[in-house]
Structure formats: C-alpha cells, structure tokens
C-alpha cells in the first residue's frame, strides 16, 4: 500500500514537532526516516499509526484519507523502541494478543503464532516470559507480534536502539531480508545515519519537524540538498568550510567536502593543494581518519586507507577534486 503525508503539522503547545510534512512512500518500499532526536520522526510515525492526531494536514493510505480513523482500523503494525512486550505474557501470548483481542479462532491464532515464530527462529522460546529472553530475542518477539497480523504496513520506531552493537548489525540485516521476503510497505525510524544508509530503499531526512531531503541513500549522500543533510549523514561528517578558505569557493558560500574526497598528495608541495599538520590519527582498522589543522587554522577530517603511515605533528599536502566539492549558500544553507 502507498502512504502519503500531505502538509501534516503537529504542534505540542507552541512547539512544532512536525511542520508541513509532505512525504510519499510507495508500495512495498522500505523508507527510513532519519534525523537527530526531537526532529519529529517518531511523531510522524505516531500520526500515521493514529496514536497522535495531526494539528493540520492529511494522511492518506492507498489514496484513502485515514486521518480520523482509530489506530486499529488502519491495518498497520508498529514495533516500538522499548518493544512494549507485555511482561505478564509469554512470547506465545504476546504474539497472539492482537488476534485474540479480535476474537479470531484459537486454532488459527495458534497456527499463525507458531508459523511466525518459526520464521523468526523463536521456536523453543514461545513459553518464556519477556524477562527470560535476551534483548535480541525480545526484539524478535516484538517483530513477530507485528508480523502475525500480516499488516499492510510496518512502522518501526527505533526498534534496534536498545541492542548492543553486534546484535544490532545482525538484526539490521535480518529486518531488511524480512522486508524483502514479505514485501510490505515499511517505514523505519532511526537516529542512526549508518542504519539509514544501509537499510533504506530511500531515506527521508528530518530536522526540527521539517523534511530536509528524500532520496536513495546514494542521492542523499552524494548530493545533499542542504548543509544540514551534508553534516548529518556520513561518519565522520562532511567538512564544511566558509567559502574563500582552504577549499576555495565564493565568499557567500559554505564549501563542503567529504573526508574520503580529500586526497593526500605524494608531492609535499602540490600546485593545486594546500598543506596541513596532522593533529590526531584515529585508526579504525579498515580505515584511518586523520584530523588535520590547515595553515589558516581550519580543521578537516581526512579519510585514508588502513595502516596509514602518517603520524601526529607531521605536515602533509592535501588536494581536493573540484568536482567533489559541495557548494551551499551561506545564508539559506541550500545547495547551489
């Protein structure tokens, strides 16, 4: 099913959690809503689920206005950040809770519960209570509870944020594979830009309740629409330097360049480059991030390969391919 937000605003008192959000999600797509905390991404999801009423605007599902429908009539399933498992129910009761509430036949509930549990590898865990499960297992029970309903759309509100890093990476892949096999429209909310980049068919970047940019991960990464998106995606983030500085550009601009697009010249005094002193070397194993200080005091992050030969206090020469630069308007922040 398709989902469309039409000029949706949500105010809490004077604070706009969502400010005229326009966003479409196509059928079967996995769209990641990403932004810093407080940017309105969870609110967007809750408005779509029917847990919050928008102050203005409409939400359409498959071209039908559902803005005033109660949550359970929207045929969406939600996975919450804290998972919201019922602590007094076993996995089986948790997964079967919705169908039982809707008075579906017990046999059918049992069959579907077991089927979904098998799909998610929860076979032996159905009679355990949430506090007898590991974080990853709890997360899968929450997912199973959403799946047992076979909803038209899945809404996931940072479901992996409480897992440890190892588990999060694995669960990330599992969710993407699950989405491929089920094919239901999914909106996934996260503040983690790496999760956004790796999971989404498309990414929607939100800040202060406003949509900053929507596009494929490559589009958003390679052609950020404004300074915020440029600085938010990528780790370490894009270097942003006032125009006329070491990265060139007009004075009324801000010039951005990604750490991996700065090359370290073999020649210590290249014609088109500039010199900088290495301030800090961060080796991440597969890559090395140098934090350098240019002669005019500008700080830049430079990404280079593993086993970097550079040491702190060394002077190196850097150059930037002009085509790799991103030029933003100094005042509006928009891409030029």
């Amino acid at each position: 099913m398709t989902i469309r937000f039409e000029r949706v605003s949500k105010f809490f008192g004077d604070v706009a959690a969502l400010d005229e959000l326009d966003l479409s999600v196509s059928d079967g797509e996995l769209l990641v809503l990403v932004g810093p905390s407080g940017c309105g991404k969870s609110t967007a999801l809750r408005v779509l689920a029917g847990l919050e009423q928008p102050t203005s605007g409409r939400v359409l599902v498959s071209d039908r206005d559902i803005t005033s429908l109660p949550p359970h009539r929207r045929d969406v399933a939600m996975v919450f950040q804290d998972l919201a498992l019922y602590p007094h129910m076993t996995s089986r009761q948790n997964i079967g809770f919705g169908p039982r509430i809707r008075r579906e036949p017990a046999d059918e509930v049992r069959r579907r519960t077991e089927e979904v549990a098998r799909q998610l590898g929860l076979d032996g865990l159905l009679d355990r209570y949430p506090d007898q499960l590991s974080g990853g297992q709890q997360q899968r029970v929450a997912l199973a509870r959403a799946m047992v309903r076979a909803p038209q759309a899945y809404l996931m509100d940072e479901p992996l944020s409480d897992l440890d890093v190892q588990l999060r990476l694995r669960a990330r892949t599992e969710i993407v594979e699950l989405h491929r096999s089920i094919g239901a429209t999914t909106i996934y909310v996260t503040h983690d830009q790496a999760e956004a980049m790796t999971m989404g068919d498309r990414i929607a970047v939100l800040a202060s309740g406003r949509l900053q940019q929507v596009g494929t991960p490559a589009q958003v990464y390679d052609e950020p629409a404004n300074r915020f998106v440029a600085g938010f995606l990528g780790s370490p983030p894009m270097n942003l330097v006032p125009g006329g500085g070491v990265l060139g550009g007009e004075p009324d601009t801000v010039v951005g360049v990604r750490p991996e697009d700065i090359s370290i010249a073999a020649d210590r005094f290249p014609a088109d480059g500039f010199r900088a002193e290495v301030a800090l070397v961060e080796s991440l194993g597969s890559e090395t991030v140098l934090s350098v200080r240019c002669e005019d005091g500008t700080r830049l992050a430079v990404r280079t390969g593993p086993r970097s030969p550079y040491r702190a206090n060394a002077t190196i020469a850097l150059s930037v391919d002009p085509g790799r630069r991103h030029i933003f308007d100094r005042d509006s922040g928009m891409r030029r």
């Binding site: 949550p71 019922y86 919705g98 509430i101």
Partner: peptide
Amino acid sequence: SNRLYEAAALEGCTPWR
C-alpha cells in the same frame, strides 16, 4: 509504560479490555 497501551490500541483493544 504507556507503550503497552498504545500497542494494545493498535490491536483494537478497548479501554475496558
């Protein structure tokens, strides 16, 4: 947690239930 009630509301669980 309020989330428990929200999760229930999504399933069509009335306040009484």
